[in-house]
Lab assay of single mutants.
Amino acid sequence: EVTIKANLIFANGSTQTAEFKGTFEKATSEAYAYADTLKKDNGEYTVDVADKGYTLNIKFAG
């Protein structure tokens, strides 16, 4: 089991951190699915992958 950390960075400057656990593939998939649910209210997003994929910096356009 691994932990994927998602740093969520919103257009208004606020930030939030979420963690997803499971296999690497499952946790990564859940992180992207979570970002997709936030897209409606926060706009499109870009992802900067860090720490060999264990950290995702997800920035929303607003």
Score class of each variant (00 low, 15 high):
Glu1Trp: 05
Glu1Ala: 07
Glu1Lys: 04
Glu1Val: 07
Glu1Pro: 06
Glu1Gly: 08
Val2Arg: 05
Val2Phe: 06
Thr3Phe: 07
Thr3Glu: 06
Thr3Val: 12
Ile4Glu: 00
Ile4Asp: 00
Ile4Pro: 00
Ile4Gly: 00
Lys5Val: 13
Ala6Ile: 15
Ala6Pro: 00
Ala6Gln: 03
Ala6Met: 12
Asn7Tyr: 11
Asn7Phe: 11
Asn7Cys: 05
Leu8Gln: 01
Leu8Pro: 00
Ile9Asn: 10
Ile9Leu: 13
Ile9Thr: 10
Ile9Phe: 12
Phe10Asp: 02
Phe10Leu: 09
Phe10Glu: 02
Phe10Met: 11
Ala11Lys: 12
Ala11Gln: 15
Ala11Asp: 13
Ala11Trp: 08
Gly13Ser: 09
Gly13Pro: 01
Ser14Lys: 14
Ser14His: 13
Ser14Thr: 13
Thr15Ala: 15
Thr15Cys: 05
Thr15His: 13
Thr15Val: 10
Thr15Asn: 12
Thr15Gln: 14
Gln16Leu: 13
Gln16Lys: 09
Thr17Tyr: 15
Thr17Cys: 05
Thr17Met: 12
Thr17Phe: 12
Ala18Leu: 14
Ala18Gln: 14
Ala18Lys: 12
Ala18Ser: 15
Glu19Trp: 14
Glu19Ile: 12
Glu19His: 13
Glu19Thr: 11
Phe20Gly: 00
Phe20Glu: 00
Lys21Tyr: 14
Lys21Asp: 07
Gly22Ile: 01
Gly22Lys: 01
Gly22Asp: 07
Gly22Tyr: 02
Gly22Leu: 01
Thr23Asn: 12
Phe24Leu: 12
Phe24His: 08
Glu25Asp: 11
Glu25Cys: 06
Glu25Tyr: 05
Glu25His: 05
Glu25Ser: 07
Glu25Phe: 05
Glu25Arg: 03
Lys26Phe: 15
Lys26Gln: 12
Ala27Tyr: 00
Ala27Phe: 00
Ala27Arg: 00
Thr28Met: 12
Thr28Arg: 08
Thr28Lys: 07
Ser29His: 15
Ser29Asp: 13
Ser29Asn: 14
Glu30Ser: 09
Glu30Trp: 06
Ala31Asp: 00
Ala31Cys: 05
Ala31Asn: 01
Ala31Lys: 00
Tyr32Gln: 04
Tyr32Phe: 14
Tyr32Pro: 00
Ala33Ser: 11
Ala33Thr: 09
Ala33Tyr: 08
Ala33Ile: 12
Ala33Glu: 13
Tyr34Val: 05
Tyr34Ser: 02
Tyr34Ile: 04
Tyr34Asn: 03
Ala35Met: 11
Ala35Tyr: 02
Thr37Asn: 13
Thr37Ser: 08
Thr37Cys: 06
Thr37Gly: 11
Leu38Trp: 10
Leu38Gly: 02
Leu38Thr: 02
Leu38Val: 04
Leu38Tyr: 13
Lys39Pro: 02
Lys39His: 04
Lys40Trp: 08
Lys40Leu: 12
Lys40Met: 12
Lys40Ile: 12
Asp41Lys: 12
Asp41Cys: 06
Asn42Leu: 10
Gly43Met: 03
Gly43Trp: 03
Glu44Phe: 09
Glu44Asp: 11
Glu44Gly: 09
Glu44Asn: 15
Glu44Met: 14
Tyr45Pro: 02
Tyr45Asp: 00
Thr46Gln: 07
Thr46Lys: 14
Thr46Phe: 14
Thr46Ala: 09
Val47Gly: 02
Val47Trp: 06
Val47Arg: 02
Asp48Ile: 14
Asp48Val: 14
Asp48Phe: 12
Asp48Met: 11
Val49Arg: 07
Val49Asn: 06
Val49Gln: 08
Val49Tyr: 12
Val49Phe: 12
Val49Ser: 10
Val49Trp: 10
Val49Cys: 05
Ala50Phe: 10
Ala50Val: 09
Ala50Tyr: 12
Asp51Gln: 05
Asp51Pro: 02
Asp51Glu: 11
Asp51Trp: 02
Lys52Phe: 13
Lys52Tyr: 15
Lys52Pro: 04
Gly53Asn: 04
Gly53Ala: 04
Tyr54Phe: 14
Tyr54Trp: 08
Tyr54His: 13
Tyr54Pro: 02
Tyr54Ser: 05
Thr55Leu: 13
Thr55Asp: 03
Thr55Gly: 03
Thr55Ser: 08
Leu56Met: 08
Asn57Thr: 13
Asn57Arg: 05
Asn57Ala: 05
Asn57Met: 10
Asn57Glu: 10
Ile58Met: 10
Lys59Cys: 05
Lys59Met: 09
Phe60Arg: 00
Phe60Leu: 01
Ala61Lys: 15
Ala61Pro: 12
Ala61His: 15
Gly62Trp: 07
